[in-house]
């Protein structure tokens, strides 16, 4: 076992040259993950990074851990088999909006439904990068791309609503360049028991530059993002505005004139209805919610699988191959 106390970010950097485009948001996410893992107190050899196909899925090659760059969309299924058979490992899945929401949509929702103890980081740049710029299942309607020269016509998925609908026990969102928030969010994901899904807004400066500029530009950061923190009121824009619950609706209110923080909705990451409502906080009417939408304890798949096996061993004893082969009706000849 490696000495966990002495691990640093450098221990998680592989000898491979990072080959993302200069200026890609993936660099910031790589840095965040490499900063976080040494802090978790887990031996390095226990980490496995599993990815699918796409720009983001090159991630494992740059991590000096066990890594598996698999096939398009299938990373959650491969990680499910790995984590189920090896609960001792710390398994991270790196995927993108095309990989997880299109070709791998089925595997994503089923991994979350089962609550397999894997951490799924979905880099959402709202475009296909590696195949050179086609619209993705999270691209906005009307997107003009190489495959949609007069604009896309199919509405996008809302990844947070989708994963909450799949029964995910942990759903969060952060942004590539909000480094401290990203590390903190990933730490929450790492510490969660069961599946953790983190949507990371990631800028593709080649095919979809400024996709999140409405919120990430310095001028807009305060007014266009609201941080969800368990037990705290939803206040943003430097305290000037807040979100209040009015009946079944969330509304943005200017604070002051008798309206204070105490009138704002206090965030509860265990409340499933609030989580769904937060997914509908869409620009430009609402600030974009960042942070943990949902974090609840649910039975963890690989632990339940292991418990069933242990129960059967306790009940029947460890199976004897001789007895198994000669089970049922047998007869002797000679």
């Amino acid at each position: 076992m490696t000495e966990t106390a002495t691990l640093t970010r450098k221990d998680f950097q592989s000898d491979q040259d990072v080959r993302w485009c200069p200026g890609c948001g993936d660099y910031a996410i790589l840095k965040a993950v490499q900063s976080l893992l040494p802090e978790l107190g887990i031996p390095k050899e226990k980490f496995v990074v599993v990815s699918g196909i796409g720009c983001s899925s090159r991630f494992p090659y740059y991590m000096d851990t066990f890594g598996f760059h698999t096939i398009h969309g299938r990373a959650p299924a491969i990680a499910t088999g790995l984590k189920t058979s090896r609960p001792d490992l710390d398994v991270w899945v790196i995927t993108g909006d095309g990989d997880s929401m299109s070709i791998g949509g089925n595997h994503l929702i089923h991994a979350l439904r089962r609550n397999v103890g894997i951490k799924i980081l979905m880099f959402n740049n709202r475009i296909y990068g590696l195949t050179k710029g086609q619209y993705s299942p999270t691209s906005e309607v009307g997107k003009r791309t190489s495959s949609t020269p007069v604009g896309s016509i199919d509405p996008p998925f809302n990844p947070l609503a989708l994963t909450l609908g799949a029964g995910a026990s942990f759903v969060a969102r952060s942004v590539d360049i909000f480094q401290q928030h990203l590390v903190d969010t990933l730490r929450r994901a790492a510490e969660h028991r069961g599946s953790a899904f983190v949507e990371i807004y990631q800028n593709c400066n080649i095919f979809n530059d400024h996709a999140f500029a409405y919120m990430t530009d310095k001028a807009n950061r305060e007014s266009q993002a609201v941080y969800l923190e368990h037990g705290k009121p939803l206040v943003f824009n430097g305290g000037a505005q807040g979100i209040v619950l009015n009946g079944m609706r969330l509304e943005v209110k200017d604070l002051g004139n008798g309206l204070t923080e105490e009138d704002c909705l206090v965030w509860d990451e265990t409340n499933p209805l609030l989580a769904q409502m937060a997914t509908q906080l869409l620009p430009p009417e609402f600030p974009t919610p960042l942070g943990v939408l949902r974090a609840v304890e649910q039975p963890v798949f690989e632990q339940s699988v292991g418990a069933q096996i242990q129960n059967e061993i306790d009940r029947q004893g460890t199976g004897s191959l001789e007895e198994l082969l000669s089970a049922g009706d047998t007869w002797k000849v000679g």
Partner: peptide, 20 residues
Amino acid sequence: YKHFNVTTFQAEDEIAAICA
């Protein structure tokens, strides 16, 4: 045959089955 340390995983589809 769980008591033989056998894990059976009924996947969401054929692809997930082999991938797991």
